[in-house]
């Protein structure tokens, strides 16, 4: 069952469409990634899902609820970590956690959450005195404190150091394992690749691709990259005829081919048939980064 359903969402500001016909469905228990460059409409989309923005048109359902019409009930099923939102600077971590705990009918244990997020030592520190990473971790704790069915995390590891980022990732995996559905906005490809079951790539207010991270990599033009230096010259047209080939470059006798798994097999066959050996043979998957750039045309 889809816990989040968005249908043909549209929103413009001052006549400029920011979200231009977005549809997506997030299944229960899934970690769904929302990727895209700045201004692609990611935040507007997720904030509409939370109910912070009123769409111009289109429908949104979260656990069957309309985030605007069923506002009060929606706040009980969604926990959110927003970009650029602060808390009262003179409240301590413990006071903030208690405040949010007391807001929900069926809260999680805030002390356990604080420990998990490495805030156990900071309970008596005021929010204003926390570092950026600590504020971020507190924001994540607050998103989880109401025991929500859906958690929306907008750029959750921005401002965290690599160690803290990995710690947060493993926490997110635990949260998912407990059955919570997660909508994750990010522009870290590594994060999406590690955490997400499926990813939607946003570009100029639309979803340009939607698949599993590996599906996206395969879908993009250059899923696999093969490079080698042949022991003796090869006929270029033999290579150009390879199946699935996306591009071919030659530099100082070294060939670099982008293609698919099929291309890899065909190259190996071709080399074997011609009794050519390949020096420095490398076969690598292109990353989600490459796929992202390819699918959004961001570097064009």
């Amino acid at each position: 069952m889809a816990l989040i359903e968005v249908n043909d969402l549209r929103k413009s500001y001052g006549g400029r469409p920011v979200v231009d016909g977005v549809s997506l469905a997030v299944e229960e228990g899934e970690i769904f990634g929302v990727l895209g460059s700045n201004g692609a409409g990611k935040t507007t989309t997720v904030e509409s899902i939370i109910g912070l923005r009123v769409p111009d048109s289109g429908t949104i359902r979260v656990c069957g609820l309309d985030p605007i019409a069923d506002r009060a009930k929606t706040t009980l099923v969604i926990g959110a970590q927003l970009q650029e939102s602060e808390l009262q600077g003179k409240l301590t971590v413990a006071e903030v956690l208690r405040l949010y705990t007391d807001c929900y009918p069926d809260p999680a244990d805030w002390r356990t959450l604080a420990e998990r997020l490495g805030l156990g030592e900071k309970l008596n520190t005021r929010f204003a005195h926390l570092s950026g990473g600590q504020k971020q971790r507190l924001a994540i704790a607050l998103a989880l404190v109401g025991n929500p069915r859906v958690v929306v995390l907008d750029e959750l590891t921005t401002g965290l150091d690599p160690a803290a980022r990995r710690e947060v990732w493993s926490l997110i995996e635990d949260v998912r394992a407990s059955g919570v559905t997660i909508l994750l906005v990010t522009h870290f490809m590594e994060e999406a690749q590690r955490l997400c079951d499926r990813v939607a790539i946003f570009s100029r207010g639309r979803i340009t691709a939607q698949d599993t991270p590996s599906g996206l990599v395969a879908q993009s033009a250059s899923g696999t990259v093969i490079s080698f230096t042949p022991s003796r010259p090869l006929a270029a047209d033999a290579l150009a005829a390879l199946p699935g080939l996306a591009s071919i470059t030659q530099h100082d006798g070294k060939f670099t081919l982008a293609g698919t798994d099929e291309t890899v097999n065909a190259v190996i066959n071709l080399l074997a048939r011609n009794r050519v050996s390949a020096h420095h043979l490398r076969v690598t998957d292109s990353t989600l980064d490459d796929a992202f750039l390819d699918l959004t045309g961001a570097d064009a």
Partner: peptide
Amino acid sequence: GYRERGILRRMSTTPV
């Protein structure tokens, strides 16, 4: 200040 710093916005995603 609460509005400027997003405190009211954050609160409005909770049952408060």
